[in-house]
Amino acid sequence: MSEMSPRWTQDPVLKVENLTMRFGGLTAIDSLSFNVGRGDITALIGPNGAGKTTVFNCVTGFYKPTEGRISLRRGRGVSDAMVDELTTSGNQFSRDGERSVFLLERMSDFKITEVAGVARTFQNIRLFGGMTVLENLLVAQHNRLMAASGYTIFGLLGLPGYRRAAEAAKEKAIFWLSHANLLDRADDPAADLSYGAQRRLEIARAMCTDPVLLCLDEPAAGLNPRESADLNTLIKYIRDEHGVSVLLIEHDMGVVMEISDHVIVLDYGRKISDGTTDAVRSDPKVIAAYLGVDDTEVDEVENDLDHDVAPTPAAPANAEGVRP
């Protein structure tokens, strides 16, 4: 990845432009723009209340943004012109052969997953606790199953087409269960799993919807170091082997710095830094935001850094260590 034009500007899978979200008089996000590169693991970080989850909620259709455009681009080489054309046409999405564009701010929630291919997990786990682990994964594949079952009628008759679809769905569920190390718990109620296992199940369930973009809201929160390492492996596996782009919110800087290709830092609803992990690590504004320095002192911090022997890892280590 060259410094000149990183992947997220060359080939974005998601482009957020001038996103603004107001709740009454409170501006949670203020004209935020960023790109998520195709095949990148992108981390959205920032102190508590910076608006990270609000961004997620806008991308996944939980909130309708007050202003702004959120375009998801499937297939390589979708031009901005194509997005503009779609914007003026008033449609929700457009297709051009392999390439397609979806304007997420125009779509309702279930369509964002079903049609556009964005999946997400939650900060507070939202599994279907009363259903088994396997069923949780099958629910995520219901669209194919419903079509194959002729809206249940063929399914009840047990026609071969439905059987095949049901078999395929189960196979996929088992595939993800084995990658999440949950195969032995397949028939247990999801609520009985441990916290770490529930987090992995949530990711496995999201993957069963065949997303192109996976949004993870604090996947490592509350995990012990071993579970956290397992999670890193799973996320990397998803990116490397399935070509799924990952956008994650995370407070655990260890996780962020280890797996991210691209880091975006928010503070008070604005983007204060955007770049590779190394670039962000040494950005004085980021350090200031994490250490709680006043805006006026940012310059001082910047000067201090300049006077130091280049930005050594020692300085950012502070930024890493301090959790808001």
């Binding site: 939980f62 279930f110 939202r126 009363g130 995520a140």
Partner: peptide, 28 residues
């Protein structure tokens, strides 16, 4: 059988537990 074994039944149970989450998994 419909409720416990078919995809439709699973969707109904999923909606019963958490409509918003079901929608996020693409359930109409």
């Amino acid at each position: 059988t419909v409720i416990n074994r078919t995809s439709l039944g699973r969707q109904q149970r999923a909606c019963e537990q958490d409509q918003k989450m079901a929608a996020l998994l693409g359930v109409n």
